[in-house]
Every structure is written in structure tokens, then in C-alpha cells.
């Protein structure tokens, strides 16, 4: 396991590095997934490019109009600790706060959580509901891609080898929008979700949606706008359970995952009712 460690200062330099090394390079942000993969031999990069010295990627930016930018080097705990964000997007900070342990959250990043493309990523359900877009950059340009299109499968994203995820853009939400997050795990201590879910309630646009994680290769969003005026938890739970395609594995059976998805939706509706 021998590789070159690069610590570019600018996004341009990072773009150039990836342009020349492509698939032989790994981007390092928090490292909490990459170091596990390095140890297991699942990742064998020739170059590891650390994004943490790039000033603009360390930005967590609240725009005046309510838009949000989460740079690739922003740690999970930075968004958990952001009071404004907590008030605005409880589903996102709630999901973030449910990841692993406090020490891990001090290193792990939001962009990393998303880009690892694990079905059980706890920030993904809320980000999916918020209409988040991932900004992909390369030496030749940049593009934005919706989160649900970014994650193309288990551990697979739409990122090209010469690109890096510079950050996540969250659009401004309708007035009074709120989100919640709920997670099912085997212990109360740190664990990967066997099912997780978020709920968005946007009174301005009469939007009511649930996103479910851990139960499909890609995040599932269930539209419930039709019941905005008369939220029906049981019906919502049913629809969510019908929308997922869970597997049985060491963490849970498909049946339990399905039923727990229903449970999570019911609890999210409890939260909605306050």
C-alpha cells in the first residue's frame, strides 16, 4: 500500500491531478471510508488527493435567499453544530447526527457520506428531499447533477474519474419548510441504518414527501403531496413500504426492513403533528 499524497491548494490543482491520474487517484476528505477501504485492500490508489487544504471546499455557506452550499471538506459535525442549519433542515442535521460516533463525525464529511453511495447513508434521505445537487468539477469544467441521479447504484456515483465532488447545493425551500429524520439500527449506539427515512413538509408549495434509505440501491422518494391537507400516516407508510426493494442481509431481513420503513414513516408523521 504505497501511494503519493497530494494536498492541492486550489480546486484547479485538484482538477489537474485527477485529469492526469484518473482512476488511479482517490479523493480524500474525512477519510473515514477511504482508510477502511485502504486497509481492506479494496482501494489501491497510486495518488491520494486531500481536499482539505482547498479553501473554497471548506465553505459551509448560507446564502441570503436560503440556498446552502456544503463544501467537500465540511465535516458532519460542522453541520450538526450549525444552529441555523438545525433550525432550517432538521432532517439533514438529524441524519448527520445519527452517523457513527462523535469522533468519526469530526472527520467524516457530508459530501463523503453522499459520495460513498452506500444505501444506508444517513444524510441522503433529507438531501434527496431538499432537491440537493452535487457539483462535480474537473480540469475542463463543472456540472451540477441532482443527488438522485448522482447516486447510480450501490457504491456507484455518476462521477467521472477526472471529476471531484466540490460540494452540495441545497436550493431555497418554500416558506415554512421543515424536515425530519428517523433511523432504525440494531443498537442505540453507533450502527449503520437498517432503514432510515426523512420527511419534508413545505406549506408554501403544499409538498409532503418521504425519502427512505437502506432499502433500495438508490434513495427512494415517495410523493405524498396529495395528502398534504390531510396527512395519513398509515397510508403514507403503506406507500413507502410499497416503493422500496429491500434485501435481506446480516443486518436485517427484507421483511423487517419493510415493516421498519412503515414504522419510521409513522414516527415521522408523529413528528410532523408535533
Amino acid at each position: 500500500m504505497s501511494f503519493v499524497y497530494e494536498r492541492p491548494r486550489t480546486a484547479e490543482d485538484l482538477g489537474k491531478l485527477l485529469a492526469s491520474h484518473g482512476q488511479r487517484a482517490c479523493v480524500l476528505a474525512g477519510g473515514t471510508d477511504l482508510l477502511v477501504a485502504l486497509r481492506a485492500g479494496h482501494a489501491r490508489p497510486e495518488v491520494v488527493a486531500d481536499v482539505k487544504a482547498i479553501e473554497e471546499l471548506r465553505e459551509l455557506r448560507h446564502e441570503a435567499d436560503g440556498r446552502l452550499f456544503i463544501g467537500a471538506a465540511v465535516t458532519i459535525n460542522r453541520i450538526v453544530d450549525d444552529a441555523r442549519l438545525r433550525a432550517m433542515h432538521g432532517g439533514l442535521t438529524g441524519g448527520a447526527g445519527a452517523i457513527a460516533t462523535f469522533a468519526i463525525r469530526n472527520r467524516a464529511t457530508v459530501v463523503g457520506n453522499v459520495s460513498n453511495a452506500s444505501p444506508c447513508a444517513d444524510t441522503v434521505p433529507a438531501l434527496a428531499l431538499l432537491g440537493a445537487e452535487v457539483e462535480l468539477r474537473s480540469a475542463t469544467g463543472s456540472r451540477r447533477i441532482g443527488l438522485r441521479d448522482y447516486i447510480v447504484g450501490v457504491k456507484q456515483t455518476a462521477r467521472r474519474a477526472d471529476e471531484f465532488a466540490a460540494g452540495i447545493h441545497v436550493p431555497a425551500q418554500g416558506k415554512g419548510t421543515r424536515t425530519w429524520f428517523c433511523k432504525r439500527q440494531r443498537v442505540r449506539g453507533h450502527d449503520l441504518a437498517l432503514a432510515n427515512a426523512a420527511l419534508i413538509h413545505d406549506p408554501e408549495h403544499k409538498k409532503l414527501r418521504v425519502a427512505v434509505g437502506s432499502c433500495s440501491p438508490r434513495p427512494v422518494v415517495v410523493e405524498l403531496d396529495d395528502m398534504f391537507d390531510k396527512p395519513d400516516a398509515e397510508e403514507a407508510a403503506k406507500r413507502a413500504m410499497a416503493s422500496i426493494a429491500p434485501i435481506s442481509d446480516v443486518r436485517a431481513s427484507a421483511e423487517y426492513r419493510t415493516d421498519m420503513t412503515g414504522m419510521l414513516v409513522r414516527r415521522l408523521f408523529d413528528a410532523l403533528r408535533g
Binding site: 443498537v187 442505540r188 449506539g189 453507533h190 449503520l192 446480516v250
Partner: peptide, 15 residues
């Protein structure tokens, strides 16, 4: 299928 602390869970201070 559970030969590490990822899936061989132990009780924590929260449990």
C-alpha cells in the same frame, strides 16, 4: 458475515 465491529455489534454507553 459479521467478523468485525461493523456488524458484530457490542452494547455501548447508550445501551
Amino acid at each position: 458475515l459479521n467478523p468485525s465491529f461493523v456488524d458484530y455489534k457490542l452494547l455501548t454507553a447508550k445501551d
